[in-house]
């Protein structure tokens, strides 16, 4: 597992949203097969966009409150935050192009 993808605690998560301009968050759980399928994709996104986007994963079993805060009802759910504000949301597993398009759009607005 590379260290490109972060696994923040609840406090670290809030700090991340305050300090990093673009944060892509993957809500997942160890028992969720589509989440496991998405994992290598998230790793690659983290490497490709290193320095521009911070990629973080939140295990909803460990951080139920965070999942609840963003009304995560199905996993995987991927949220994109731009300067702390929710800028994009994808529910369910999608091909790489969908996440790239979401990120690229925010990068162009910066």
């Amino acid at each position: 597992m590379s260290d490109a993808v972060l696994h923040p605690s609840a406090e670290e998560f809030d700090r991340l949203l305050r300090s990093e301009p673009l944060v892509l968050v993957d809500f997942w759980a160890p028992w969720c097969t589509p989440c496991k399928m998405l994992a290598p994709l998230m790793e690659e996104l983290a490497q490709r966009y290193a320095g521009k986007v911070t990629v973080a994963k939140v295990d909803i079993d460990k951080h139920g409150a965070l999942a609840g805060r963003y009304e995560v009802q199905m996993i995987p759910t991927v949220l994109l935050f731009h300067k702390g504000r929710l800028a994009g949301k994808q529910v369910g597993m999608k091909p790489a192009g969908v996440y790239e398009a979401m990120v690229e759009e925010e990068l162009s607005i910066r």
């Binding site: 097969t33 589509p34 290598p40």
Partner: peptide, 19 residues
């Protein structure tokens, strides 16, 4: 088969929760 995900020139197939 519940979902198929193209990635890295291959395809991941979710078959009975096995990838």
């Amino acid at each position: 088969v519940v979902n198929i995900l193209p990635f890295g020139g291959k395809f991941m197939v979710n078959f009975n929760s096995e990838i």
